[in-house]
Nucleic acid binder design. Sequence first.
DNA 1: GATGAAACTTTGTAAAC
DNA 2: GTTTACAAAGTTTCATC
Lengths: 160, 160
Amino acid sequence: MGPVKLDRIDIAILATLQRSGKMSNIALAATVGLSPSPCLTRVKRLEAAGYIAGYRAELAWAKLADHIIVFTEVTLADHKREDFVRFEAEIRRVEAVVECHVVSGGYDYLLKFVARNVAHYQEIIEAILDRNLGVEKYFSYVVIKTVTAKDGVPLRFLLP
Amino acid sequence: MGPVKLDRIDIAILATLQRSGKMSNIALAATVGLSPSPCLTRVKRLEAAGYIAGYRAELAWAKLADHIIVFTEVTLADHKREDFVRFEAEIRRVEAVVECHVVSGGYDYLLKFVARNVAHYQEIIEAILDRNLGVEKYFSYVVIKTVTAKDGVPLRFLLP
DNA sequence: GATGAAACTTTGTAAAC
DNA sequence: GTTTACAAAGTTTCATC
């Protein structure tokens, strides 16, 4: 997990693997303009340094199962440290919550839910409210259409 | 891309590959309780049917580059069909926008941005406003802390 | 579905340049 | 860093039960 300097080739490797994680080392080497041996060395180094968190298959959810996505703004009634800790600990255990962020201004948490349908979402929310986690109010935004959903983030855009 | 019936083993394969996309076929077969040959046949069938959208390396953004995430609510001034089409076409071209959803109630779009810092985000937003895409108002929520960010969605949770 | 054999590809390492 | 070589391992196909 030591610090590793990233040169242009390392960035190219990361960017390529982000798009095609199963590409063979030979194909990867050709893509980034390296011969296979040093390319593999770099990949192993990047993995060991912790820059690659893992490899995942991206599933086609739309084809696999009917589902809806809902973003929910949550405001807690009290704002003591223990209120936050308790809410977060419990929300982590809810399968339907795929993202939960603390945000600045307006409200406390922004959550992203996945559910089979609106009724299913309602069940989930009510189960959360029943647990008395100190939710003062919440507002739900059901996703009607997703315009953009990038798999990764353009590396070159974020790196200086 | 034909229709494929998914049995318990198919679901297990998809769930496993979602977690470890680079697992070898031999290891995968052992995990789902199959011998390698039929296991590979199933994987190929699932890929051909379009249930697996691709394989990706998940990068460790926190280690790679300083960055912030911002959720932005956008309301358009006019709601004619062409207003939506124009806004969506342009927003797709903004690198910093990693997600863009049409949502029900409150406002029109919920966007998820990635930027190097708040000043960078401000630049990006101003560039969007300068293009006169019909944005009447917007509100930004900077992510202070991410409590949960699941890589995939539990398959069994969504499937009936 | 399982098994096992055979051909092929890729990986991972090590040599020499 | 490149190229070549090579052994180990994994993939893929095929025939058989």
